[in-house]
């Protein structure tokens, strides 16, 4: 290391690794992991999100989980929360649908209305 720019490179990479601890987060994905969600494959959905985000190197997206959301007939249910925008809830998610949501919604900013079951808070 010889310059502050070298240090900055290390810092940015390391901040990336630490983003869970309150870094720069643009979109938060909340997967409903109640009993019925898990029964309908919510874990698979979450894993796919994690993989897709990792493969695409999306640094400002956070995946977290919550309990039963009360939409049991539409499980697995996923919320996408973006700063300054109404919350979007997707239902009946599968791995393939996740891939589409990642490309369309998270990368290109277009809500995949076919899968949406609710919007707003």
């Amino acid at each position: 290391m010889k310059t502050l720019a070298d240090l900055k490179k290390i810092r940015e990479k390391a901040q990336e690794e630490m983003k869970l601890r309150g870094g720069n987060v643009r979109i938060k994905i909340v997967v409903g992991m109640g009993t019925s969600g898990i029964a309908m494959g919510a874990r698979e959905v979450m894993k796919t999100f994690l993989e897709e985000i990792s493969n695409r190197n999306l640094t400002d997206v956070l995946v977290t989980q919550t309990g039963e959301k009360g939409l049991s007939s539409m499980e697995p249910v996923v919320d996408l929360i973006e700063d300054g925008k109404p919350k979007v809830t997707y239902g009946n998610m599968t791995s393939d649908k996740v891939k589409k949501v990642v490309v369309e919604h998270i990368v290109n900013g277009r809500v995949v209305s076919d899968y949406v079951v609710a919007t707003g808070n």
């Binding site: 502050l4 290390i10 810092r11 690794e17």
Partner: peptide, 23 residues
């Protein structure tokens, strides 16, 4: 932070003060 990781210290702005002072 993990005290045994220099990267985590750098992530919180570590060694930037040293770099600025020295340069």
């Amino acid at each position: 932070i993990d005290p045994e990781s220099i990267d985590e210290y750098i992530a919180t702005g570590g060694y930037e003060a040293l770099g600025t002072v020295l340069t």
